[in-house]
């Protein structure tokens, strides 16, 4: 594996569209559930161990070489909210563009051709990791990290939260991110039957409501 390639893929500046999404943080801020760094930490922890674990395992499985189209179906089955399905596919399409330019491979080409409107983002990210010579743990780490870094960046913008406090929240979560990535990769090695299906119902519900807001800063 190339540790530097992992840094490129995990970089928040990797141009794959994530900057326009809050990972559910915008409705949580609006509802008063995130008001400070402590609330942000609780939100991130919840997202990491639910939606984050599920997405990390899908990415790890794609990095291992499991059939991406079956993984895409598995991702649909684990995403009950139509708004979040649409978001996952949109971000998957954007990840695909950046991945094909960065680490072109026949497997990425095949998935792009089979899902021109976008496969679920974690599946594309996992395949991108595979094309970059990375392994399942790397892909899972990448997803675990972006599961919490996205909301943290969004909350800095939404609440004018001190950016040092937000970054400290991410640093404190590092051991839990490692653990989630480890569990995700382990599950992926067990094949389709072992893929976790942890979910956060409140994130699903608020995503549906958020998608209907006439005025919002983030796309999701």
């Amino acid at each position: 594996m190339s540790r530097a390639a992992l840094l490129v893929l995990a970089d928040g500046r990797f141009p794959a569209g994530g900057h326009a999404h809050s990972g559910g943080a915008e409705p949580a801020v609006k509802a008063g559930r995130i008001r400070d760094a402590q609330d942000l930490a609780a939100f991130c922890r919840g997202r990491l161990h639910t939606a984050g674990l599920t997405a990390a395992a899908l990415a790890a499985a794609a990095a291992l070489g499991l059939d991406p189209l079956r993984l895409d179906e598995a991702a649909d089955a684990r995403t009950p909210s139509p708004a979040l399905r649409a978001t996952a596919r949109r971000l998957g399409r954007q990840m695909m563009r950046a991945a094909r330019a960065s680490w072109p491979s026949p497997e990425l080409e095949a998935l792009a051709a089979a899902r021109p409107r976008g496969a679920h983002q974690p599946v594309v990210l996992g395949l991108a990791a595979r094309s970059a010579g990375l392994g399942p743990e790397d892909a899972a780490h990448c997803v675990a990290y972006e599961t919490v870094s996205g909301p943290a960046t969004a909350v800095v913008r939404l609440l004018s939260l001190n950016p040092f406090d937000a970054t400290a929240v991410l640093a404190r979560l590092a051991p839990e991110m490692d653990e989630v990535a480890r569990r995700a990769a382990e599950a992926a090695r067990g094949g389709f039957g072992e893929l976790p299906a942890a979910s956060a119902p409140l994130l699903d519900i608020t995503a549906e409501a958020h998608a209907a807001w006439p005025v919002r800063l983030f796309a999701s």
Binding site: R13, P15, A16, G17, G18, H19, A20, H21, S22, R90, R93, Q94, R97, A98, A154, R157, L158, R216, L217, F218, A219
Partner: peptide
């Protein structure tokens, strides 16, 4: 296109949503 509070990012640093 929705820009997540960063209009210059969407036209310069991460143009994926606009290309789409």
């Amino acid at each position: 296109v929705e820009t997540g509070a960063c209009p210059h990012t969407a036209i310069r640093d991460d143009i994926s949503a606009n290309l789409e």
